[in-house]
Write a protein that binds this DNA or RNA. Structure first.
Length: 634
DNA sequence: CTAGGGTTAG
């Protein structure tokens, strides 16, 4: 369709429509040529419907007419047309008209045009300034945004509830905590804190700059909190790794009589996913169904991710199938969902389907796909994807892609190939990459390579206890006790403490948390009796505790004792007591599941006839009839 | 002239 604009200035023949005696008018069209030709004499349509042929009138002497015309403008061309009319008629001197023009330019991201006009304006009010500040923010030009805000302040204007939030959002997006604090101070000084937009922006700024306490302080001090502010605070907790507080806050919000909307539910879904709280996840899902929220791309994708991370890839798939619109993020989420559950083949099946529906994969899609291969041990498939991503999809691999591939090759025992890849790669090597290699060395007991990886790791991440533990496990496995002692010395010298392992479990809508040797539960006595019985049963079935997974240099018997009270074992014992026979047990662990607990759980699933689903720091393990969905490949 | 939302390795 040819976009066409037609301008017609006429003496009004239908003057009775206007109170003014001056009848100068313009008609601006945006219509196909043909329609235009049919229209020999343009008629003045003051309330034209926004259809394909789109035209509207303008009263050259009426500022309100310019404003309403600008609202209807569909193209940059039309805006310029109105702009030049405003100049001709000197109506540009009218602040309202000029502001509206600046605004429509800004909305079209034509900030250069907006600025050209703005800089020529003889008179500017806060509206003019906030349009400019907000326009640069929307465009992502933070430097110009801050500069405009600074000029605004220097011009002697009083900050208001429009300009301040824009500036705060720029601080948030650039992580400029200092400047944000300064603006917060000014907010206080000028008495703007009572405005929800201002305070919500302050909360959001602190939240995204990682200052949870300050965010909460401001949140608590607000006289009135609206739903958006609640949502900001809820998402703040979830993002900084405190999802249980998110959910608690969500409950408080409902008690406060605030009705959540879609966006709130997305953040709550995120918290559920982090926590692996299936019970809450179902409640979230029920709620969005009850409220008949449409599954838009973002809400749908957040539900996919939530269900996947709560242990049900099938529930995730159901959502995926229900979605009317899917983008690359939705597809990648689904790929990743299958991936973390070890269903690599299904993950890869999605790829051609995604392409068929016209969605082009991005770097994250490939990370998800490669990781899916890695979790399922699909070496050839992974390798092929890695090479095709550059050749066929023009996505340059970054360090994460290399990490997936190193992980994939390493686990499969192809350590030389993995090392070769690391040598050849041109991207910068990071912690995760060496971590993947070290993990592979542990599985295959490759001492020299492990030392090499560990050397890099202990430099790159000297505070991460996980790598010390891994290295020490490798030494212990080979009986190199002197080296084990050295690693331990290094840890104490550097004051690095082994990260405590936690397992949590949801039973009857309640969450229970356990750590090693935990005795805090009121039913502790029963739990440990159960554990003793289980161990006996397992040992009869041939289970031998694998003490290599214990770091401490203690004698074998004590080691076994320690091992036997690992948090996941305690949690399993409790679950066996507290849940009906034959029901599925679901639990979460903050670290990677240890090899001994993995063996233990496999045998429990067989002997006690239970399916056990464990989410560890990396993936899901579905234990059933003595084997695990990860194929001992994790 | 006003806000808050989704996927990623180890």
């Amino acid at each position: 369709m040819t976009k066409f604009a037609f301008l017609h200035i006429t003496k009004s023949s239908i003057g009775e429509h206007f109170s003014s005696s001056c009848a100068a008018s313009a008609v601006i069209l945006d219509s196909p040529l043909k329609k235009l030709q049919e229209q020999q004499t343009p008629t003045l349509l003051s309330q034209a419907q926004p259809t394909e042929s789109h035209f509207f009138s303008l009263r050259l002497d009426d500022p309100r007419s310019y404003v309403s015309a600008l609202v209807q403008c569909r193209s940059h061309f039309q805006i310029r047309k109105v702009h030049s009319l405003a100049i001709t008629s000197a109506m540009i001197e009218n602040l309202g008209v000029a502001n509206k023009l600046v605004y429509v330019y800004a909305q079209q991201h034509a900030m250069d045009d907006a600025y050209a006009l703005f800089s020529r304006m003889k008179e500017r009010d806060n509206v003019s300034w906030s349009i400019m500040i907000g326009g640069y923010l929307k465009l992502g030009d933070f430097i110009k945004c801050f500069e405009s805000f600074r000029d605004f302040v220097r011009s002697g204007s009083q900050m208001d509830n429009y300009t301040v939030p824009f500036a705060l959002r720029a601080c948030r997006d650039t992580g400029s905590l200092r400047l944000g604090q300064e603006i917060h101070h000014l907010v206080y000084k000028f008495g703007l804190s009572s405005d929800v937009f201002v305070s919500a922006a302050v909360v959001d700024m602190y939240a995204k700059c990682g200052q949870v306490k300050d965010a909460r302080k401001v949140f608590d001090m607000m006289p009135k909190r609206d739903m958006v502010t609640w949502t900001v605070m809820i998402s703040c907790y979830a993002e900084c790794g405190r999802p249980e507080e998110s959910l608690a806050l969500f409950d408080l919000m409902e008690e406060d009589g605030i009705v959540p909307d879609k966006v709130t539910m997305v953040t709550v879904a995120f918290a559920c996913g982090k926590l692996g709280a299936m019970h809450r996840a179902k409640m979230v899902h029920d709620y969005i169904r009850k409220r008949k929220f449409s599954l838009d791309v973002i809400l749908g994708t957040s539900m996919i991710d939530m269900f996947a991370k709560c242990g049900s890839v099938d529930a995730a798939r159901e959502i995926f199938d229900k979605m009317k619109e899917r983008n690359v993020i939705s597809w990648s989420s689904m790929v990743s969902a299958y991936g973390i559950h070890g269903r690599g083949k299904e993950a890869l099946l999605l790829f051609p389907q995604m392409l068929n529906s016209g969605i082009w994969p991005n770097r994250i899609s490939f990370v998800s796909a490669l990781s899916a291969c890695s979790h399922a041990g699909l070496v050839e498939e992974g390798r092929q994807i890695f090479y095709s991503m550059q050749k066929e999809y023009f996505v340059e691999p970054d360090v994460k892609h290399y990490t997936c591939l190193v992980d994939l090759l390493g686990r499969a025992g192809r350590l030389d190939e993995a090392l070769d890849l690391i040598k050849k790669m041109k991207v910068e090597k990071d912690e995760g990459l060496w971590g993947a290699l070290l993990g592979a060395c542990r599985i295959h007991g490759n001492m020299s390579l492990a030392e090499r990886a560990a050397k890099s790791l202990l430099e790159l991440a000297p505070r991460n206890s996980g790598y010390y533990v891994l290295l020490s496990n490798i030494y212990a496995n080979a009986g190199k006790w002197e080296e084990v002692a050295l690693v331990r010395e290094m840890m104490s010298y550097r004051r690095v403490k082994k990260a405590p392992g936690w397992t949590w479990i949801e039973i009857d809508n309640k969450t229970y948390q356990f750590r090693v040797g935990d005795k805090s539960h009121p039913q502790s006595k029963e739990i440990y009796e159960k554990l003793a019985v289980l161990s006996e049963k397992l040992e009869l079935a041939g289970y031998i505790p694998d003490t290599n997974f214990v770091l401490h240099d203690i004698d074998e018997e004590l080691k076994a004792e320690f091992l036997y009270t690992h948090s996941e074992k305690v949690a399993i014992a409790f679950a066996l007591i507290a849940t009906p026979e034959g029901s599925t047990i679901r639990m979460m662990k903050n670290l990677r599941i240890c090899g001994d607990c993995h063996t233990f759980t496999k045998m429990i699933s067989k002997i006690m006839l239970r399916e056990i689903v464990v989410r560890d720091a990396n993936r899901f393990h579905h234990f059933k009839e003595g084997s695990c969905s990860c194929g001992d490949y994790w």
